[in-house]
Design a protein around this nucleic acid. Structure first.
Lengths: 196, 196
DNA sequence: GACATATTAGAATAAGTATTCTAATATGTT
DNA sequence: AACATATTAGAATACTTATTCTAATATGTC
């Protein structure tokens, strides 16, 4: 074929990721990504059709990895573990977590998903919905809007809130947070089989 | 003196606010602010030294108003009411709340506060810290890091989390959220006088 | 070794946007 | 009414950044 590639796609993603984590989403220019690995901007556009596609690929890769672990715990219907998953994942993935949990998706990628990755993004969302619905049925014995609301609050919204403050400060979430999230989870999720 | 002003500062702030709420922070160009009220861009710069100063003034005004109400409730040492304050404020101020609670401050204003409003911003932060510390002492009978952590979690982080999802969807937070926040608050804040 | 082509290389282009500048206009003061 | 000046008015400027374009270069295949 032709010439051997000097840079891998992964290198471009990593460069973008590091810049987001260190200087925020607005600092991720195409030129800065290239510079970070010593590549010319032309090479960036040889691999990616646009800046959006880099950011979208980066975000989706991280989100898929995060969600995979979460769904496995949901599958095991382990309520407390699910509520603590975000915290543990953040500790294990400090750079990725800023991208996924600190900034709004729209800050990284424009309002709309690029056409080329829309299916991938929709699949991700759909999978999460299914996983949570299945969990709710298993855990509460039946589905109800109320049960769903409690689950989303305890397993997603509160864990996210517990972590954001520390992501902003660029610090590992302290141990005490686990206890607060656990207590909240027990309280919110203890109301079982409440049909309405 | 000279010619009578055609536009008030408030009009510029309101224009900026509406654009943020409707199209997001990146859509707030100086030209768009001017256009929204039928003013020329020159007039904008006659009032404000920079785009940052408009956004900073807007943000600070909203934050001060939000915080004033919050501190009053803290002053009354009303724990549950404090945890529900954010929800009620969001319902009463749907546009302002997107600016204060949905977007990161850095999305609206650059990384650094403009020199001219830094004191105002620092005073705001300082006042909040004092208010919370005083509350902790009153409520728990003594100050401890643990008590402070629980308070911040129950009265700030969780209420914020409970509301964000709905701000994104541009909808009023539903009634059921109050119940979840209340239950969480009771659980987290019931451990009194635990010195360590 | 010559050829085809994938890739690097980086200069040139295009587009958007904050800011500055110069002129026109209206209003209170004398 | 004449003047001083705050304000409107919007064109011109400067700057940043995504994207495109053209050329050079290296590598696998014949």
């Amino acid at each position: 074929m032709g010439r051997k590639a000097h840079f891998t796609n992964e290198q471009f993603y990593t460069a973008a990721m590091n810049r987001v984590a260190e200087h925020g989403p607005e600092a991720v220019t195409v030129a800065s990504i290239a510079e970070e690995i010593g590549a010319p901007v032309g090479s960036v556009y040889h691999r990616f059709s646009s800046r959006e596609m880099i950011m979208a690929g980066l975000w989706l890769g991280i989100a898929e990895s995060f969600q995979k672990g979460f769904l496995e715990i949901l599958d095991a219907v382990d309520c407390i573990q699910a509520s603590l998953y975000t915290l543990q994942w953040v500790r294990a993935n400090p750079v990725e977590s800023k991208i996924l949990l600190l900034y709004r998706r729209e800050e990284l990628i424009g309002g709309e998903w690029p056409e080329q990755v829309r299916e991938r993004a929709e699949a991700l969302e759909q999978t999460l919905r299914c996983g949570i619905t299945a969990f709710v049925k298993q855990y509460f014995g039946c589905y109800s809007p109320n049960n769903m609301q409690r689950t989303v609050f305890a397993l997603i919204d509160v864990p996210l809130a517990s972590v954001r403050r520390h992501l902003e400060d660029d610090e590992t979430p302290p141990e005490y947070v686990d206890e607060l999230v656990r207590e909240t989870c027990i309280t919110i999720m203890e109301v079982r089989n409440e049909n309405i």
